[in-house]
């Protein structure tokens, strides 16, 4: 219950619109429920949750690929709930962040999500199944991409 924020974040990054978000949320929940017996505690609970959630998200994204292509990016940004416009940052900055993430490929989205969640490179490596070195390489490329998107000039 306390860790449901992880699922919400994955859903927000990988879906467009409320309907898709709800569908993905439910699929992740079902999958977490099914694979819970396989959780033996040799990894952190959040690591296990990220593994399952990202795996389901990637499978779902491709299933919806055709309908995804029809949705304009602006539509999704407009659909973001007003509630996420915090006191500290205005809606424009938050939308810009989501817009930038949306332009990354699906694997990069997963890595940047974990990076923004302050996960260590070793932890990201454990979730993604790659080496910490390769995480560093990937993050370097992603940051360069984001910089380009956020500061086009």
């Amino acid at each position: 219950m306390e860790s449901q924020g992880i699922i919400h974040k994955v859903c927000t990054v990988y879906t467009r619109g409320e309907e898709q978000r709800k569908d993905l949320f439910q699929e992740i929940l079902i999958q977490l429920w099914r694979s819970y017996p396989s959780f033996r505690g040799d990894a952190k609970f959040t690591t296990w949750m990220y593994r399952i959630s990202l795996n389901v998200a990637l499978q779902q994204v491709r299933k919806r690929k055709k309908s995804l292509q029809k949705v304009e990016i602006s539509t999704r940004i407009l659909e973001l709930p007003e509630a996420i416009q915090s006191n500290e940052f205005d809606g424009a900055e938050i939308k810009l962040l989501y817009k930038a993430i949306d332009q990354l490929n699906d694997v990069e989205k997963g890595i940047v999500l974990l990076y923004l969640e302050e996960e260590e490179n070793e932890e990201i490596a454990r979730i993604m199944g790659i080496t910490p070195n390769y995480v560093r390489v990937k993050l370097h490329r992603i940051k360069a991409k984001l910089k380009k998107i956020l500061n086009p000039q």
């Binding site: 219950m1 919400h8 509630a83 996420i84 915090s86 940052f89 900055e93 962040l97 923004l116």
Partner: peptide, 26 residues
């Protein structure tokens, strides 16, 4: 926008998001 700001914006946005979407046990 600077890259260093991203984590702060992300954290701020998602703290609101958690409250918005939080599900009950039922």
């Amino acid at each position: 926008m600077e890259l260093s700001q991203l984590k702060n914006i992300w954290e701020s946005a998602n703290s609101q998001l958690d409250e918005e979407f939080r599900m009950s046990k039922e």
